[in-house]
Amino acid sequence: MRQVAHIFRKEFSAYFISPIAYIVISIFLLVTGWFFFATFFLFNQANLRTFYTLLPVVFAFVIPAITMRLISEELNIGSDEILLTMPVTYGDVILGKFLASVALIMAMLIPTLAYPLTVSFMGQLDWGPVVGGYVGAVFLGAAFSAVGLFASALTRNQIIAFIIGLAICFTLTLIDKMLFFLPQSLLGVFSYLGADVHFQNIAKGIIDSRDILYFISVCFVGLFGAHIALNQKY
């Protein structure tokens, strides 16, 4: 477990040593800030609904960009040979990198606390859904990180890792909006697979164990997939 902490610390600071963290956070704030406030005054409602509606799609783009380098870069420059001949397991490596990505997502969400604060000055803001939304955002971010990490373990090319990660996250986000393509019998399964529904449930302020379980399952599947992908390489 201490090895996880060391790898986490190294990966998290690596985001801030290179310009990745600053670029990703800026773009994230720019996009969410613009779309949120562009329509905020039209709706004339003191809530964060538009922000939360948008968040899964933005995450589907931003998170694979955060996770794409995590394993691909190691495979590409060959530093995995150095990392994996030190006393660490694949599990330590994957978990440490996953937590670093989740921590960066949290760091990215902190500046957006300015939105609910601004809104609360303008009207009666119900803090329940806001808190729920942030909890959900962390869960959603963790699930997408696990998926992105899996994509990153598949290839030594960061761009391919990004595209695979994006494709899976995007599918998870939009799958429940594509249900009219599917036969009736499969509807239940596929609507459960959609990340958006589960996130919106939490963002309404309802914390349901099914939604939490969904995100934890996605994390587990993603991380386990990354573990298998790494195992296959050696």
């Binding site: 690596a14 420059i77 150095i82 001949t85």
Partner: peptide
Amino acid sequence: LGYLPESAPLYHDM
């Protein structure tokens, strides 16, 4: 063990 791989592939940014 201590291991030095061929061409020492280290993290460039650190």
